[in-house]
Amino acid sequence: MELLLFGLSALLMLISTFFFIVSGIGLVRMPDLYMRMSATSKAATLGAACAFLAGALYFYDNLSVALRVFAGILFIFATAPIGAHMIGRASYARGVAVWEGAVIDEMEGCYDRSTHSFHSSPQHNQTTATTPDETGTAPQAPAATSQQAAP
């Protein structure tokens, strides 16, 4: 029984180091900030979760450790996408260039620099840029406000 648990723990730790190394290679080799962020936020999160599970399997007779491990996995899975989205949004708003081989940039011209908010279409942004008091035409206004993120 103990041999099985410890073997599983060693295997999970090996899987976690594999994911960490893969995300490191992605961080070095990817040509673009946004692709690098996808490599770190997905692979590294899975690696940390596997490491937590390995710890839980090693301290199998200590139930409080298992509870902490559960909380840690839940916390990491909840916060890693939020942090990655936040960094990506901020760096796009700041003007970090996408890769020159990228086919399409759908967010081009949708960022309003005066209000720090993204709009759903570039046309709406132009209307707000010319007349800042009005919030766009009637059919576009609800979509724009729903897309607007909290400052």
Partner: peptide, 11 residues
């Protein structure tokens, strides 16, 4: 991003 990943490896 690299700093964020460094702290995840620290875990």
């Amino acid at each position: 991003v690299a700093l964020d990943k460094l702290s995840v490896i620290a875990i």
